[in-house]
Amino acid sequence: MQVRGMGGNAAGGSAKLVVDHATKHYQTRSGVVHALEDYSMTVAEGELVCVLGPSGCGKSTLLWAMAGLHSLTSGEVRLDGEPVTRPHPAIGMVFQEANLLPWRSLIKNVQLPFELKGLKPEAYRERIDRLLARVGLKGFESKYPRELSGGMQQRASIVRSLSVDPSLLLMDEPFGALDAFTRDEMNLLLQEIWLETGKTIVFVTHNIAEAVFLADRIMVMSPRPGRLTNIFAIDLPRPRPLEVTARPHFFELVGEIKASIDHGAGAKADVELV
């Protein structure tokens, strides 16, 4: 089940996203930080890949580079064969802690991408309504972010990204700030949306159980410099019910990944087990 080596491809599907020898160094007051070192991977069309690693291992740096939000020191990211050097309309990004604009109501937050793209949000009203209803936010359109729970805020943020119909969704520890129950609920919802829409998703997390529950494949990263150390293919059948997380096979997978991180990184890795 464990696929060793860099840039291992999933069986079948064509390459949607390719990260080709990505290296990112940046300057801080205390010197040069090697955030990402010669990182390569391929994500197949319609695949759900989790990038797993401890805090500060360069996961976010990698994701921001994939989104075209910052440049790489060397190497490149290609979407459908085209290099990504700037934000791309086919790429949707879901940020940590929802990242809603507090001065806008929920509906105005969801309409933001349309405004920025010079489109009339009213013309997409039906699509937005359908998505809001899908994630259970119908009736909350006029609420402000501070009036919504963390889970609702993150659901709104997902709707905001999906509303412009990207083919690739990048998610940067989106559920990290949520409590365990809400997180389970969100993971289940994300799996459903993914199965319904067939979007390609790259999901960054430091939570092993979350990665095992969601992923087709898990890319394990080592910290400083961020390198790809292991790739795990997760063979749990879909759709995965929450109960799967209580089965022995699930624990085996989590344990195996945990062990690989402990050995691979040498030092103790502060990765959440559950």
Partner: peptide, 27 residues
């Protein structure tokens, strides 16, 4: 930075970021 990155991820221009993110934040 996260809010500016959000706007940029949707292809916002510098002017749009100023009008839709920076001014409301400063208001």
């Amino acid at each position: 930075l996260a809010k500016i990155a959000l706007a940029r991820s949707f292809g916002a221009s510098t002017l749009q970021i100023f009008l839709k993110i920076r001014i409301p934040m400063a208001l």
